[in-house]
């Protein structure tokens, strides 16, 4: 039996829409015929705190949490958070990150500075690194709020799942009035 499990981590800041993105991913894997598990923490951490969502798929998945150092793909919605969680990945993993910064409290208060040159630092550790202008492409698609969908499109290219399945998952999970823009945003991401 093929026991390969693909481990995806979605990281960012509470309020960025990470839960919806991880739901769309999970839905697509289920539609493609895989066993899927996902896990994240709700509650206190949602108040602008650091958020990690784990999504795992394969023939049979046991733990809902990605084992330490076993991540295959890191899907970062914010640069500092992308950098924070690199240690969850296995060497040679793929990193797809939104080129977007949100300052945490110590930086807002002038007690720390936002680390410089994060994309270069990430690339040095993980050569398979894609930096995405999520906000820019989303705006081009018609709504800056579709940035997560741009990212989803970029990640989708690294997963062996048929085009139709992604469309089906988006149709099920995205509200009807926002669907057209999101499908467009997904295509922009997939084209990268």
């Amino acid at each position: 039996m093929d026991t390969t499990i693909t481990n995806i981590l979605l990281v960012g800041v509470g309020g960025q829409g990470i839960l919806l993105a991880s739901e769309i991913l999970s839905e697509a894997f289920m539609l493609a015929g895989f066993d899927v598990k996902k896990s994240e923490i709700h509650g206190m951490s949602q108040r602008g705190g650091s958020v990690v969502s784990h999504v795992r798929f394969g023939k049979e998945v046991f733990s809902p949490v990605v084992p330490e150092g076993q991540g295959d793909i890191l899907f970062g919605f914010e640069l500092l958070e992308t950098y924070r969680y690199l240690s969850l990945l296995k060497p040679g993993a793929t990193v797809v990150a939104n080129d977007y910064k949100i300052a945490p409290p110590s930086i807002l208060l002038g007690q720390a500075v936002y680390p410089q040159a994060l994309p270069e630092k990430i690339k040095a550790k993980f050569p398979d690194f894609l930096l995405v202008d999520g906000q820019g492409l989303a705006l081009k698609a018609g709504d800056v709020r579709a940035a997560n969908t741009v990212m989803l499109g970029a990640v989708s290219k690294r997963l062996q799942i048929a085009d139709g399945v992604w469309q089906q998952a988006l149709e099920k999970m995205v509200p009807k009035k926002a669907l057209e823009i999101n499908l467009k945003a997904f295509e922009f991401g997939r084209g990268l």
Partner: peptide
């Protein structure tokens, strides 16, 4: 092989 974690500014809830 483990990728070492590096300290970055924390992001507590607010």
């Amino acid at each position: 092989e483990v990728i070492a974690a590096e300290p970055v500014p924390p992001r507590p809830p607010n």
